[in-house]
């Protein structure tokens, strides 16, 4: 059984406002002097509650900087929550960065292994899949060549084949689909669908509202780190589209476009000063 449960989860990043903390400050800070380079707490996620179970396909939408990717990374375990509890059950597979973990001096076969181990495969489970992965790349003897010599398209093929070979229980996807040439794209889309349907639980972030509508059973609209709206994907997407539709009053920057991505007034995450 796969399950995600976020209970009043908040995530706060602490950043230096102006520049990197200097070495001198690093040593002195907290010992003698108050820093003149105040720390800023950025509330990337605030009081998120979310329960998801087997069969859920959750789409996350929202402006840039709304906390979508942060939320996925939180679920993946990359960021531990600052407060609240997070429960994730099930083997997690995260597709955030398609070319993650490539070692450019090593050949294709080795890279399949590095990447697969990063995704939590074991020698036994990988053995069964290795040939499948290799076949799917269609790279043939190029797999014996260091990845350094690959074209970017070939890299994408390799990466995608490995990434989608996992059999995750919890699948986390961050905008990865626009890969390779036409022929491969069709194949990739097919594979992606298979993977999504085999996963017990999926959370995806996308700006492609249509795929959210068609693939997801639930949608969440994030804004400034909080959940604006959650529920049926059609309703949420409609509400979101409505909110970003050209209305001068809503856009301090005066941007007027139809594309929700472009129309973004890039709202900064809430910034709260605090003493360093």
């Amino acid at each position: 059984m796969a399950k995600i449960e976020l209970n009043d989860v908040s995530l706060t990043f602490t950043l230096s406002q102006e520049r990197r903390v200097t070495f001198k400050e690093y040593l002195i800070r907290g010992l003698f002097l108050p820093s003149r380079n105040p720390k800023v707490a950025v509330h990337a996620l605030a009081n998120i509650n979310l329960t998801a179970n087997d069969g859920d396909r959750i789409g996350i939408i929202g402006h840039n900087g709304a906390g979508k990717s942060t939320m996925l990374k939180l679920l993946a375990g990359i960021y531990p929550p600052t407060s609240g509890t997070k429960t994730v059950e099930g083997k997690i597979c995260s597709l955030f960065d398609i070319s993650l973990g490539f070692e450019h001096e090593a050949n294709g076969w080795d890279n399949i292994m590095y990447r697969a181990y990063l995704q939590g495969e074991t020698p036994r489970s990988l053995k069964a899949k290795l040939q499948d992965i290799a076949d799917f790349t269609e790279l043939g003897s190029f797999l014996n060549v260091p990845v350094r010599y690959y074209s970017s398209g070939m890299l994408v093929r390799l990466a995608f084949s490995i990434a989608t070979a996992a059999e995750p229980e919890v699948l986390l996807i961050d905008e990865v689909l626009s890969v390779g040439d036409m022929a491969f794209q069709n194949k990739a889309r097919q594979r992606m669908k298979e993977m999504m349907s085999s996963a017990r639980l999926m959370v995806m972030v996308s700006h492609d509202l249509e795929s959210i509508r068609s693939l997801c059973t639930r949608a969440i609209w994030l804004q400034q780190g909080t959940i604006m709206m959650a529920g049926d994907p059609d309703e949420v997407v409609d509400a979101y589209t409505e909110s970003v539709a050209p209305k001068i009053s809503r856009h301090p920057a005066g941007l007027v476009t139809d594309d929700p991505d472009q129309a973004e007034p890039v709202e900064p995450a809430e910034i709260v000063e605090r003493a360093a």
Partner: peptide
């Protein structure tokens, strides 16, 4: 901030009601 912290708990098929499932709770 309760307003923004919507608890999503859709009525779900099988999973929710099976006794007390093993859980891992992680806090800061």
């Amino acid at each position: 901030r309760q307003k923004s912290a919507i608890v999503i708990a859709l009525p779900d098929s099988d999973a929710s009601s099976c006794g007390s499932p093993p859980t891992t709770r992680i806090v800061a």
